[in-house]
Nucleic acid binder design. Structure first.
Length: 466
RNA sequence: GGAGCCAUCGCCAAGUUGGUAAGGCCGUAGAUUGCAAAUCUGCUAUUCACCAGUUCGAGUCUGGUUGGCUCCUCCA
């Protein structure tokens, strides 16, 4: 198994700190709004990582946090008059539900900032005690980046005198321009505050992740976790800062490997709130099936940017359809055991830094070969069973192909419509028997107008929702 | 201003250590079909933004040019 480390910028063999185990921490969402396609992509990317590591027999412990203390949440509290807890629990529920719809497995650990305050406080205290952090008169606590001579090793972004055009605000309280807040003291009475030794206030964003990792992962003498993941936009400053805090507080590096996923773009631009081009996952799910979305969003290598458009999504659906048509052909039945070569080819592809393109091409090849074999030997039971097992393996590794194939092609068709289709098909079969092709073709046209495609097979006429 | 990523067929997209361009969609010819659909088979980039260099040999390495994107502010 090889993964690309975005700090060393090369593909490296994955050698975990504890043999046979893989600890992963991914930066989760700040829960003040619905998840957009970018959240989906990130989740999907690391879901694929987790599934692949499991397929390679690693015992995976994945942690994905919910940032539930944040300025934007506080703003939402002020706007809506609702409590912070009401807002965050609402969006956490939605997030979990929507991620489930696109087949993302739940992380083993899902910590929240509000449940990690003790860990956060003790880590900040440790940094103050070791003189890596300082408290200013307002009660804010800052991390002193000049004390950490490894600062910049993660993102390689810190120049010697980079303050010329830097957009970082220069606060006179800060000792260095790159210093960042570990703790923000209360400003007004409406503020959301937690009491600590240094001041009453709330944690900064970066420290939340570091503290949660220390709290939940056993780590080792050299690293706290194996893999730290997140969107490419988090590399700097968030991951740089996380790494610095953890390094200075614990005396060892935070993560052995760092992985970053590319962005979802619309018309070549990053999808973001500020550009006003974000596309909520819930909206996509109201139009497209979650499994199709999963297939589509995962169809491009995780490190590349992903240009979202409907045409490509439909192309992905066609590809997925082919898998389900094959499944239809070999169903019902029980899977026997996976074809060894097929399994090996898939693992080889995914083991190479999650090369999904190769994996999908391996699947397409398997589909074509099997269909071919089935054309000449329609009753090959052993092949059917093996194919079912192959599809089960695809599902466990890549997270699609699990649905009952007939229902897959009937998504969005209600019982009344189903009955109508059945009646029309019966009529058509009769007309065909009587060689009344004019009538049978008319019925077919009628069905097509209803967005129903039909196909005549040896086992009778089958239909699909287009 | 600083840092980095990317540019491969009409579209999407692979391409570890340089060795002579996967796969999908679309298109097209055929098998099959009453005709379709589905399925299968064949065809579909002498060429990898451009220029120069290294090399027996470069999409792959080096330098430059052009174009696109991202980070340095919250962001997956």
């Amino acid at each position: 198994m090889h993964i690309y480390d975005s700090v060393q910028k090369t593909k490296l063999p994955f050698e975990p700190i504890h043999k046979g185990e893989a600890s992963i921490y991914v930066c989760g969402p700040t829960v003040y709004d619905d998840a957009h396609l970018g959240h989906a992509r990130s989740s999907l990317a690391f879901d694929l990582l987790s599934r692949t590591l499991k397929a390679f027999n690693y015992k995976v412990t994945m942690g994905k946090n919910f940032t539930d203390i944040d300025d934007k949440i506080i703003k939402k509290v002020e706007e809506t008059g609702k409590s912070m807890e009401e807002i965050t629990s609402f969006y956490i529920k939605r997030y979990v539900k929507e991620m489930e719809a696109i087949g993302v497995q739940r992380a083993e650990i899902e910590p929240k900032a509000t449940e990690s305050l003790e860990a956060i406080e003790s880590m900040i205290q440790k940094l103050i005690d070791k003189d890596f952090a300082y408290v200013i008169s307002t009660g804010d606590v800052y991390f002193d980046t000049s004390k950490d001579n490894c600062y910049g090793n993660i993102s390689h972004q810190v120049g010697e005198d980079d303050d010329n055009q830097s957009r970082v605000e220069h606060t006179s309280f800060k000792r260095n321009p790159k210093d960042f807040a570990l703790w923000k003291a209360c400003k007004g009475s409406e503020d959301i505050c937690f009491d600590t030794n240094f001041s009453s206030g709330r944690p900064g964003w970066h420290i939340e992740c570091s503290a949660m990792i220390e709290k939940h992962f056993k780590g080792s003498d050299t690293y706290s976790i194996d893999i730290h993941g997140g969107g490419a936009d988090l590399l700097f400053p968030h991951h740089e800062n996380e790494a610095a805090q953890s390094r200075c507080a614990t005396g060892h590096e935070l993560s052995k490997y760092w992985m970053h996923n590319g962005f979802v773009q619309i018309d070549g631009e990053k999808m973001s709130k500020s550009l006003g081009n974000s596309f909520f996952l819930k909206d996509a799910l109201s139009v497209y099936d979650g499994e199709v979305l999963r297939y589509y969003l995962n169809s491009v290598h995780y490190r590349n940017n992903f240009n979202f458009n409907e045409e490509d999504l439909l192309t992905s659906k066609k590809r997925l359809d082919k898998l389900y048509r094959l499944k239809k052909r070999v169903s019902p039945g029980k899977g026997s055991s996976v074809n060894k070569n097929f399994k090996q080819a898939l693992l080889h592809a995914m083991g190479d830094d999650l090369n999904i393109s190769i994996a999908l091409s391996v699947i397409d090849e398997m589909i074509a070969t099997t269909n071919d074999a089935l054309d000449s030997e329609p009753k090959n039971k052993a092949l059917k069973k093996e194919t079912l097992a192959n599809i089960e393996f695809i599902d466990s590794l890549l997270g699609f192909g699990n649905k009952e194939p007939f229902s897959y092609f009937q998504i969005g068709v209600d019982e009344a419509l189903k009955k109508r289709i059945e009646i029309l098909l019966e009529k058509r079969t009769e007309a065909k028997k009587a060689k009344d092709f004019e009538s049978s073709d008319a019925i077919r046209d009628e069905l097509i107008a209803m967005n129903i495609a039909i196909m005549d097979t040896a086992e009778g006429t089958l239909w699909e929702k287009i």
